[in-house]
């Protein structure tokens, strides 16, 4: 069985700055993997490379969907999304003036067909597709628990809800692989606990593989199957939560630091 996401020696330079230095990472089917590291370690940069927002300097990225392996190097962001990888953003990037439902409907874009001509004709098929999009989006809102706010403007949602809306929007692209960039940032402990349950539930329901960046250690330790640790763009450790907890390098680089804080 091939892993769903397989990244090999990924390197990203920004001028003289090496933001990623030969990072290797694998996410298996239905696995929840965490990527941790101190601020500025290059975690978000890693996501941006994998989703095609940056062109990596070197390395390979492969996504395996339905036993077909696609190389993601050189692919555009929207093509990668269409292949089955979706993400959320650390600094929330919702379509803030649109409604909650519309945000999720935009996520359905790559799974629907209607073009300009059918928009003008509004034939039966177009209308049906549109209704299906609305209903599917509403279902997804229900899944993340935002169905009551469906007609609100997205920017009026509280912070935690906005994060969950980002997840719903990502799910609308029907991903096999979901990348979450600090989904619990700004959430209170209750919300964080709900989020943890939500991620597990989503994994089971949609057969998702999840890669998440997170600073909340209790969440990382209790949620993930495996953990990768980065520092200054280089991978320094990987393993199960128990292994990571007792790894001296990690404690020095990361856990120690946050314990002091």
């Amino acid at each position: 069985m091939k892993p769903v996401l397989e990244v090999h020696e990924l390197t990203q330079d920004f001028g003289g700055l090496r933001a990623l230095n030969e990072v290797c990472l694998e996410v298996g089917e239905k696995e929840i993997v965490a990527l941790i590291g101190p601020n500025g370690a290059g975690k978000t940069t890693f996501f941006n490379c994998v989703t095609g927002i940056y062109r990596p300097t070197s390395g390979s990225i492969n996504l395996t969907v339905n036993n077909v392996t696609h190389s993601l190097i050189g692919k555009k962001t929207h093509e990668i999304t269409a292949l089955g990888m979706a993400r959320t953003f650390q600094n929330i990037r919702l379509f803030s003036q649109m409604t909650v439902l519309e945000n999720v409907m935009v996520g359905c874009h790559s799974r629907t067909r209607a073009g300009i001509l059918s928009a003008l004709l509004r034939d039966r098929r177009t209308r049906r597709e549109e209704q299906e999009t609305v209903d599917k989006s509403y279902e997804l809102l229900k899944t993340v628990g935002l169905e009551r706010q469906w007609d609100e403007t997205a920017c009026n949602l509280p912070y935690g809800d906005q994060r969950r809306l980002e997840i719903a929007r990502a799910l609308a692209t029907e991903p096999h692989m979901l990348l979450l960039d600090e989904p619990a940032a700004g959430m209170n402990p209750n919300e964080t606990r709900d989020l943890r349950e939500l991620i597990k539930r989503l994994r089971d329901r949609y057969d998702l593989s999840v890669l998440l960046i997170e600073h909340d250690m209790s969440m990382v330790m209790s949620l993930s199957d495996r953990i990768y640790v980065m520092e200054y763009g280089s991978p320094i450790a990987s393993g199960t939560p128990a292994e990571i907890r007792s790894n001296p390098d990690v404690i020095k680089a990361y856990l120690g630091e946050s314990r002091d804080a």
Partner: peptide, 20 residues
């Protein structure tokens, strides 16, 4: 329409709409 919604998404945030 679907295209119109995509246009509005583009207005709001190009990177996010590409990621969608």
């Amino acid at each position: 329409s679907r295209v119109g919604l995509a246009l509005q998404a583009l207005r709001e945030d190009e990177i996010a709409s590409e990621a969608m």
